[in-house]
Design a protein around this nucleic acid. Structure first.
Lengths: 310, 310
DNA sequence: ACATCCATGTAGCTAAGCTACACACTCCCT
DNA sequence: AGGGAGTGTGTAGCTTAGCTACATGGATGT
């Protein structure tokens, strides 16, 4: 069976539209349609069926698309093998990050990457809801994503996930707050406070729910911001307290914002690299991921040194 | 990378000659040569080098050929997936067997296979030396082979090996032999006898060596035959004793030939199905192998019932 | 030294797969 | 209801990858 056609089917499984597949593969929709029709004839059973004006895969189609992924992985691994033979981690790698990880990891990582000649990394930042991370793998080689402990929204979807670090989420307080002298806090300590929260779909929301459950009373969320800088400004202004990622909080509020660890709830997030399995095999991609891993370890070690965990 | 070209490289790794690859893939040598040249240009480094009038693979070429096998496996698995969807174990499967296994397993197995419409099995028999079994996988989908315990001549070569049964090798005696009343024998019992052996490269030879080692004196091998029927005839004629596979000995010498188990040496052989990994994934091939496995179990159970092991 | 077997060039053809355009269908919005 | 914008799918025609047929040059062995 022709592997190109399988590839098209696999793209269709992700993009849910022939037009989109055509755009992604630099082809005409007609060409895609024709090739899928040939594939269907060879298979001898329907792989797609119309649903409204788009079309969706049948069970057989989905199963075949899954196999197609394995083929793509084997193929990518083959090209990686000979890239290794030439020691040639060359090419373009596209990466999308959420803001805080971009700030924390990318500058250091890209400095390392610059040492590899011919390796180009194109970065963008997006601030998606938690559930939207997997969809980005269709567009980008590497997706920096986060999740809370135990929660794996990208499990079972056949994506490759490489853990980079786990980052504690502390409680950010103004320096003159009544709790600012404590070494650590419990849900009961903070449940009565006014909170600066995050919009729906962001993980911090879940931790506030945990605090409510542990303390037995609801928290008061005054504002909801996606941008951490804004949140920090509000905290410093005394308008509330907030959950702040320990390694990521801004140095632009020195002395005016203090972080206190939270005990009794799983207050940490996992930062991972999320990839389509075939793309994860490319030597250039693997090189970038390796750099990210060491950079993450470096950041974590640095913070542990200057402020040892309680 | 084009998978067809990788396939050609893989064939070249096995057949060691462009002409042979061309013959096997129904192409002209020129076409094969051109495609390999394209592959080499894409790879950016030499994959083959001339050796005399033929050519051999470079290290890079071999590594790439190995990856090509994984691609072929993934691809074969994909076509198997949709064959399963259609419940369509159709096609031709070629099989080569050594004589005794062919006699023991194939009639029953092919009767089972006949129940699957559209599944055709083409069988041949060959009586190769032990070391020649792997080469046959280039030509046949399934190779029935045997090996002694602990010995795996086809390990590390990337072949798929499915165990079918382990068959004890007993000592065949004429019915009026002085040892014919014993229930089992030791190396010391039989080392002084005159033996009918097998030619070089056959596994029985190794067991005779083991007998010599255990008993401490050399055995006398009078004749060397490959065909078991001939051996049995010589034994019945009182010209010597011989190692005889327990499940395979002929019923054409009823009462005139008795088998006695041998203790103290590893007197058994493993009968396995040997396949190229990609071919092993074909649904039709897997179906035939499954039938062979159950048939082997049936034969083994039947013998255990009529003559329980000591 | 000649015959033989090999890989590999070159010219030319066939057919797979693309684009461009036209058409049919579903949805949504006024 | 009825366009308009979205979808997938046919048809005609072209481009080119990849094949065959034949010729060439190097290595082997008698």
């Amino acid at each position: 069976m022709d592997v190109q056609r399988l590839e098209l089917l696999r793209e269709l499984a992700e993009r849910h539209s022939i037009t989109e597949v055509a755009r992604a593969t630099h082809r005409t929709p007609s060409a895609v349609s024709q090739q899928l029709k040939v594939l269907e004839r060879e298979a001898g059973l329907p792989l797609t069926e119309r649903s409204g004006r788009g079309l969706i895969l049948t069970d057989a189609g989905r199963a075949l698309a899954r196999s197609a992924t394995n083929v793509a992985v084997a193929l990518a691994r083959a090209t990686a093998v000979w890239d290794e033979f030439r020691n040639d981690a060359t090419g373009e790698v596209s990466l999308v990050t959420f803001p805080t990880a971009g700030e924390m990891l990318l500058p250091g990582a890209l400095r390392e990457v610059a040492a590899v000649p011919g390796l180009v990394v194109n970065c963008t930042d997006k601030d998606p809801e938690l559930s939207d991370f997997p969809a980005l793998t269709a567009e980008f080689d590497i997706v920096l994503a986060y999740s809370l402990r135990g929660q794996l929204p990208w499990g079972g979807r056949g994506l490759t996930v490489v853990p980079l670090m786990t980052e504690p989420l502390d409680v950010g307080l103004p320096a003159d707050h009544r709790l600012a002298t404590r070494t650590w806090l419990t849900p009961a300590d903070v449940v009565g406070e006014t909170w600066i929260g995050a919009p729906h779909g962001y993980p911090f929301e879940r931790i506030l729910h945990q605090i409510e459950q542990k303390a037995g009373s609801p928290v008061i969320v005054a504002q909801q911001f996606a941008d951490l800088r804004v949140i920090e400004a509000f905290v410093v202004a005394g308008l509330g307290i907030a959950l702040v990622p320990r390694y990521t909080w801004g140095g632009d509020q020195p002395g005016r914002l203090v972080l206190k660890p939270l005990r009794g709830v799983d207050a940490e997030r996992q930062i991972v690299a999320l990839m389509r399995p075939d793309r994860a095999e490319r030597l250039a991609v693997r090189t970038v991921v390796d750099v990210l891993r060491t950079e993450a370890a470096r950041v974590q070690a640095t913070h542990a040194a200057i402020a040892p965990a309680p």
